[in-house]
Design a protein around this nucleic acid. Sequence first.
RNA 1: GGUGCCGUGGCCGAGCGGCUAGGCAAGGCUCUGCAAAAGCCUCUACAGCAGUUCGAAUCUGCUCGGCACCUCCA
Length: 488
Amino acid sequence: MIVQKLKIYDTLKKETVLFEPLHPGYVGMYVCGPTVYSNAHLGNCRTYVSFDVIYRYLMHIGYKVRYVRNITDAGHLEGDLDEGDDKFAKKAILEQIEPMEIVQRYTVDFHHVLNLFNTLPPSIEPTATGHIIEQIEMTQKIIENGYAYENNGTVYFDVDKFSKEYPYTQLSGRNLEELLNNTRELEGQNDKKGRLDFALWIKAKPETLMRWNSPWGEGFPGWHIECSAMSSKYLGHEFDIHGGGMDLIPTHHTNEIAQNIACHKNTPARYWVHTNMLTVNGQKMSKSLGNAFLPEELFSGNHQILDKGYSPMAVRFFMLQAHYRSTLDFSNEALQASEKGLNRLMNAVKLLNNINVSVKSTVDIKGLTNNIYEALNEDFNTPVAIAGLFEGVRFINLINDGKETITASDKLLLQTLFKEIVFDVLGLKEEQSERTEKIDGLMQMILEFRTEAKANKDFLKSDWIRERLKEIGFEIKDSKEGTKYTIL
RNA sequence: GGUGCCGUGGCCGAGCGGCUAGGCAAGGCUCUGCAAAAGCCUCUACAGCAGUUCGAAUCUGCUCGGCACCUCCA
């Protein structure tokens, strides 16, 4: 597959631009990963599913991609109290367990959930605690360069000085003066010079559990330095794509850019990619609002707004039916629509292998292929690509009904297209367990009984079998080729 | 209060100056013992008001409504 004219929306330039990697053929991509102090909710998953498709598509069109996604297991301050403890220590005291026990529990949960969503693991998944030395070194370098200062064991980034030389608020588009006037003064951080200054290294309090030695005494790394340190280490001082959720723009990524410039004299990424939020009834899904879904609740249907459970692939498909930069509103109805749509798509994929070929094609497979790739090249427009797939679904069904025809070579093209887009790029998969085959055998047996009853015109019995199966969750369809079933 | 984004048919969502995305739901037809599935057909929308233009969902202004960020957040 040749490298195509891929366009990406860059948050920094605020426009869609042609993607040209730093080193032809290679892509370095860094995505801000989760803070593992609680279960990943569905909104978090949307971001990682979005970047999974971006990762898959980049590889599909021929790039060799190094995808780095961190695990934040230290460093973030607690917002309200801000006493200098970090989140993990707090939760650990509360639950009477070790901080790293929390980290382990939720890291495992995170991987488990993303695996259910069929996301590919990143190339490197570095942890903040595993890169304390790099973070200290970067902090030192920033101090040496004059953009940070130490005060009483804590090191702050000097935003005032930095912003006089570089456009600090370029990414967020905020007005610096407004920010200065409206930023809340954080308690316990009175050692800093400017209101906007943020900590690179934080002095440990006596009760702080997670602490490391540093040139400034015992402490732990600040809010944003880990991503700068780890992206620099694994992708270089400049790399191609830096991604994350949109809510990271004003603070985390703004500060990350500042740190990188202060340390290495350049912006880390050539393209900034941000995913939009998942909403519930128009409101952002978040833990604090109490409207966050745990993936487990979604799969089991064990939640008040859900009528039933939905499979991970139905949810993944639901996410991909909206563009990654649009908000996506979550509802029972929308999910049901996606589930049925996915089902139709997957049935056509299966049917495709069995359709008959002719000497002539009455459907335009090349045009369809072009449309789908054009959509994906236009800032990864998965909803439009999926619309194209459904056009293909219609083709397949019409051919199956004998209303359209396809040549053997076009059939092969269509099979390749569906395999590559549906499975490789969109990352959808057949949801089958090892029990599926046994169920299938069992079903064939039951259907044989029913066919026999039908042959004897014992419709009372055949309908009874169909009704009973429907109650259990199997849908029966009679067709010329025999009886088929789908699991509802 | 400041900044930014958005309001598209019953629902979810693309589109971003002309060519009626797509999925789901609904109604009709074909097929069928009846269903289901599948196919075909129907449902032609862009918050409101002005303006720019030969032409606007798409550009501009105003009004109304919603959301996000400014505090950790994907």
